[in-house]
């Protein structure tokens, strides 16, 4: 997220309405811009502006309330949500979250790769974060850009719970085909096929497994051709299962648990977060 800001005027108006100060542009996505702003107590927050004409509210009010109540240090605290109408009548969803000054996993990977011990520590942290969301919440969009860190701290924090989603997006597959690789790279088969009956915390487990695979092997666990990572997404949709090379690498590394995490059917993955943690530590 490093493009030029387009909503700085809106951000300033929102900040004024919320009694926040010094909105500073941090980054942008397809339909969203993020600003750092300080609340009335001087605390740094992430102010996220989402253009309502381009997205729909993906999360129910109940889920948003549950996220607000979630007091896990491993999950970004949602401090407030509101709707803001700009002078030009554009309507924005505003989400205020804790601001993380340690950057994202994506940022860290630009500097250096992680050791196996660091990856295991990261996976444990992410599984604990997912566990803290139980029993009602599923993140549904775990990827390096949504894994943040506090300054000088190794513990990961999950952010961006997909409160909003592209209106034209009937499934992640359609979105990916239209817009190129992105989040679907980390998505489970049930998410890619929009099979809501199958989507639960085990979908997050799959995404964490893909993140681990990427960190440990440099590729998606379903990826055959090193030069064509996108083909892995089709393999996930078709539920072909993890590749033999990946399985051999994980077995050799003493991490067969990662193989189980990325199984194509939820019932073949770990049944609960504690089972993952026990297997990872083994």
């Amino acid at each position: 997220m490093n493009d030029k800001p387009e909503l700085i005027d809106v951000a300033e108006l929102v900040a004024r309405k919320l009694d926040f100060k010094n909105p500073t542009f941090c980054g942008k996505g397809s339909f969203k811009e993020t600003y750092r702003a300080e609340d009335s107590t001087g605390r740094a927050t992430a102010l996220k502006l989402v253009d309502r004409t381009k997205i729909s509210i993906e999360r129910t009010d109940r889920e948003i309330e549950a996220l607000k109540r979630c007091n896990s240090p491993r999950v970004a605290k949602i401090l407030a949500t509101t709707i803001f109408t700009a002078p030009d009548k554009r309507v924005f969803d505003v989400v205020v979250e804790e601001f993380f000054d340690g950057g994202s996993l994506e940022d860290r990977l630009k500097v250096r790769s992680l050791t196996q011990a660091e990856v295991i520590e990261l996976v444990e942290g992410l599984i604990l974060a997912v566990k803290d969301l139980q029993p009602n919440l599923v993140h549904r969009d775990i990827k390096p850009a949504n894994i943040m860190f506090r300054k000088n701290q190794p513990e990961p924090v999950l952010v961006d719970f997909g409160i909003v989603r592209d209106l034209s997006q009937t499934s992640l597959t359609a979105s990916w085909l239209a817009s190129g690789p992105g989040t679907p790279f980390f998505a489970s088969p049930e998410q890619l096929t929009n099979d809501k009956a199958l989507t639960d915390w085990r979908s997050d487990q799959f995404s964490i497994g893909v993140v681990a695979s990427l960190l440990l092997t440099g590729r998606h666990p379903y990826q055959v051709d090193p030069a064509n990572p996108n083909a892995a997404i089709y393999a996930v949709i078709e539920r072909r299962g993890p590749e033999p090379d990946f399985k051999a690498a994980m077995t050799q590394a003493g991490l067969p648990a990662i193989i189980k995490m990325v199984q194509p059917w939820p019932v073949l993955r770990f049944r609960d977060p504690d089972s993952v943690l026990a297997a990872i530590k083994r």
């Binding site: 009956a197 199958l198 639960d200 085990r202 059917w265 939820p266 019932v267 073949l268 049944r271």
Partner: peptide, 13 residues
């Protein structure tokens, strides 16, 4: 087999 795995996935959740 996918039918069984789908049903089991839903039930086990």
């Amino acid at each position: 087999p996918s039918d069984a795995l789908r049903i089991a996935s839903i039930m086990s959740s």
